[in-house]
Simulated assay, not measured.
Amino acid sequence: MSSELQKPVIGFSCGDLNGIGLELIIKTLADHRLLDFCIPVVFASNKSVNFYRKSLSDINFNYSNGKELDRLNTKQVNVYNSWEEDVVITPGQLNETGGKYALISLKDAAQALKNGQIQGLVTAPIHKKNIQSAEFQYSGHTPYLKALFEVNDVLMFMVAENIKVGLVTEHVTIADVAPHITRESITGKLRIMNSSLQKDFGIDKPRIAVLGLNPHAGDEGLIGNEEETIIKPAIKDARHSMMVFGPYSADAFFARGQHEKFDAILAMYHDQGLIPFKSLAIGEGVNYTAGLNAVRTSPDHGTAFDIAGKGKADASSFLAATFECIDIIRRKAGYAEMRQNPMRKMSAKMMANAVDEKLSEEAES
């Protein structure tokens, strides 16, 4: 098989047309070295791409265009025309146009992912309220993809080189968090996280930390009883099949650097997990949807309307999301190959056991 055919096809949805999505895509894909690792396909339109390309005069960005995913240019960026009509783009403005075409792009890209026409998807930021319509009644990309792929559950998994954080609840109001924290929801997220760490990140025996819901992890029932009645029993259930520890008091856990001893952390709600994640990931965080039978990543930020169209957007997180998408595809393939090759599996297991023994010694010291 040629190296061209081995490169995964990676799709890019454009996000809100008036946000920084297409600017990020152009800045990321303008580096032609990326073409050595994947075949990029941008789901948008020639005119929309050209609108933002003109505002980035110092960037040399060329592409092929068309509407046939089975006839892609393997040596250039491809633009798949999800729409042909002229669209008035107004960077920085929140309006119906931005949400409408964000959804058109996402639908085409996500369907191509489901059909196997692309091997991975990197989604540019949407405005969660602006994209709402009769066809999109979700709190974000994650629940939309869960419904499209018809899976029982998925995990919003924030990943970086130095920290990985998953969420039990995602875009839920604080008033509604506690009712969503159940024994079943925690064990379900832990199963997805453990499987993802093994298959998607090559960690044979992951060590997972679980945070408490209440301040000081409930202080043994003094400040709420969810830790005693829900979280601890869920951890006990999960320990039959994985290495899980906790619940930990969230503030002390990160303040004392305990996150460095674990492969991933399960947080109970959005800000509990994302504030420390974004502080520690230093601009290179990636949002990964674990639990799908496909690979989707995105940057860990929003539409940034305040700088849209000004050429100021930092593409670091988007570039990280692109490479993470490629890497996960390769690691998944490597995991599948390892499962079929007993000798390779035995070697990997011996190495993982040695690392685990060292971590256990450090935790006890």
Rank of each mutant, 00 (worst) to 15 (best):
D58Q: 14
K67Y: 03
K114Y: 14
A255Y: 14
K47V: 00
A252Y: 00
K189R: 14
F157R: 04
N62F: 12
H301F: 08
E184L: 08
Y335S: 07
K345Q: 13
L155V: 12
N293I: 04
L106Y: 06
A336W: 06
V244Y: 01
I174F: 14
E364H: 11
I10G: 01
F51D: 03
A217P: 01
S317V: 02
G257Q: 07
V295Q: 04
E226T: 13
G221D: 07
D36G: 09
P179S: 09
V88M: 10
K232Q: 08
Q93P: 00
A354K: 13
P247S: 07
I307D: 04
G116Y: 08
E226L: 09
T229F: 10
E161F: 09
L274Q: 02
K75S: 15
G166F: 06
G98M: 01
F51P: 02
A333C: 09
D204T: 11
G302D: 04
S241V: 04
A147C: 00
S279N: 13
S195L: 09
M243C: 03
Y63F: 15
S133W: 07
E337V: 08
K100T: 15
F262D: 03
K75E: 15
K47R: 13
H171I: 10
G309K: 01
T289V: 11
A363S: 11
Y138N: 03
D58N: 15
S249A: 15
E161I: 12
L280F: 02
N62A: 12
I328F: 02
F245P: 02
A234E: 06
Y138M: 02
D86G: 02
L148T: 08
S57Q: 14
R344A: 15
G285Q: 11
L197C: 08
D300W: 03
F43C: 05
P179N: 10
E84P: 00
R33C: 10
Y52T: 09
K199R: 15
D356W: 09
H259W: 05
I307R: 09
E96Y: 06
N18H: 07
E364Q: 12
E284Y: 00
D327I: 00
K100Q: 09
S13Y: 06
N60G: 02
F254E: 01
A112M: 10
K129G: 13
A321R: 00
K199S: 14
G116T: 05
G218Y: 11
M243N: 14
A294S: 11
H180W: 09
I118A: 05
T123P: 03
I26P: 05
A109D: 07
M346R: 09
A250I: 01
I186Y: 05
A178C: 03
K107Q: 08
T289P: 05
K67N: 15
F277P: 02
S45K: 03
